[in-house]
Each structure stands twice: as C-alpha cells, then as structure tokens.
Amino acid sequence: MRDYRSFAARLSGAELTVLYACGRPVSYQRGDQLMRQGERGECVIVVRSGLVKVTRTDDTGSIRLLGVRGPGELLGEMSCLDEQPRSASVVAHNEVYGVRIAGKEFLDYLYQHPRAAREVTCQMASRLRAAERHQEAMAAGGVDGRVLWILSDMSELFAPNGARTAEIPLHQHELAQLIATALISVQRSLRVLRTNRLVTTRRGRIVVPCVRCLRRAAVVRETGTEAINRRCADPDCCSG
C-alpha cells in the first residue's frame, strides 16, 4: 500500500525543527517561480503551505505539467544530491510559504540525521515508482482509463487526513497535459464521471465526492467507459 504522507510528515517533530532551523522562511505569490529547469541545484525548499506545480519545457518550447505538490513536500532534492541541472521548473499555484535551505546545509543535515536521509531516499523512490505507474497507465489505457487513474491517484494526495472527499487543484487543460491527450477527450471523460457522480467540476478544480468510490472504479481492469460506468454502491456516498 502506498504511503501518501509528505516528506515533513515522515519526520519527527525534533527532526523537522532542526531542518527548518537550517534555512530561512520564504514566500511566493501565484505564478512566482520557485525553481527553474536547467539551473544548478543550490537549494531545496520545504513547502509549509500552498500548492506548487511542477512543469517541464521540451525542445519545442511546449510546457507540460508533471504534477502538483502541496504542504510538507520537499522540492529540489535530486539536483541538490547529484549536482546536475534541475530537470523541471516549480511554479506557485497560489500563495506559498516554505523554508529555503542551502544545498550545503541540507547535505550536512542529512549526514547528521540518517533517518531523515532515508526518508529523502524513500521519497525519491516513491516518485520514481509513481512515474513508472504513470507511464504504464498511459500505455495501457484509453483516455477514459487514464483520466480515471490520474484522478484516483491525485485524490489520495488531496484528501487531508484520510478525508472522504478531495479537491484536486487542476484545470481541465492541465489534466489533459498530465495524460498527454486532447482537451476535448478529457472533457468527454469528465462528463461521464459527472453523470456517474464520481466527480464534480468547478473552475480550476475537480472535486471527488468520495475518494474510496473513485479508487474502486479505478482498480477495475477494464479500460474506457466500461471502467468508468460503474456507479458507487454505497448509498451514503456519491451514487445518492
């Protein structure tokens, strides 16, 4: 079973206090760039509140959304560890507060706190596995299956403390970027999900009324509308 806790949530209170003391508070407004693709990794940032979007620009200049990160997430650790240029950019989705820690101080902290170093390794491994699952889902499923998979996966991240509902901060065109398909195809899939009361849509948000029900639909092996057209059987949840 996946561990959806953030990096900060995996640390003890004492470990987190020492980590924050290594850096300085920073704040960003919507659209501000926290990290830039191609730059040297001279720091890491721990998000304390707000949401950021991770994007990558390809050789043609097209920008693709890779994911969304929230409170407690550690950003920029890979480039800091391997001393390679950053592979993606990070942009504030809304008002963001965090702690910026210089690379040397971060590495010294990890040396002095082996358990925290292990959690960094676990986070990197978890993100690698998530990327592999993403690639498998993109290769195996039709558009409907891909939409269902990515929403189910992200709903786990945005259901605070195991809450039944989740609000995913994505525009529909950003969802299309995540699954590498046309916006009109995503809109069609979302209409089916709305009909089955598995999601509702608002401006800039996709709301999952019942995370458990969406997950149940996502694990169905069929792809396409056969996977999506399964109403929730729980009368207290989204089937009404």
Rank of each mutant, 00 (worst) to 15 (best):
Q135G: 02
Q172I: 07
G204I: 00
I184Y: 06
Y28I: 02
S89A: 07
V220N: 11
R230Q: 15
V147S: 03
V186A: 07
G70I: 12
L74A: 08
Q172C: 03
E95A: 00
C238E: 02
N196K: 07
G224W: 11
F158C: 06
Y109R: 06
L34R: 01
V220C: 06
S152C: 10
G67K: 11
S152A: 14
G142F: 09
I179E: 11
Y109M: 14
T195P: 02
F106G: 05
H173D: 13
T121E: 13
L34Y: 07
A159P: 00
S79F: 13
L190G: 02
A217Q: 13
T223L: 15
V186W: 00
A166T: 10
I45K: 04
V26W: 10
S185L: 12
Q123A: 10
S189Q: 01
R212C: 13
Y28H: 07
H113L: 01
R194C: 02
A233C: 04
H113D: 03
R205W: 08
E132C: 14
G98S: 10
Y97Q: 13
L183W: 13
L170W: 11
I184S: 12
R100V: 06
G103A: 06
S189K: 04
V44Q: 04
S62D: 13
S6Y: 10
E95C: 08
A102C: 02
C122M: 11
G23H: 03
R203P: 02
T225W: 11
G103V: 00
E39G: 05
S89K: 04
L183E: 09
R164E: 07
D234F: 06
N94Q: 09
R231Y: 10
D3P: 15
L34W: 00
L170M: 06
T181S: 15
R146P: 05
A218D: 14
Y28F: 09
G72A: 12
Y28C: 05
R202N: 07
E226C: 04
C122V: 14
G38S: 02
G61C: 08
R188F: 07
A116M: 04
V199L: 12
I228E: 01
A176E: 01
D108T: 11
Q135C: 04
I150K: 14
M78H: 07
R36M: 01
D58S: 05
S189L: 01
G61K: 08
A139D: 15
R203S: 00
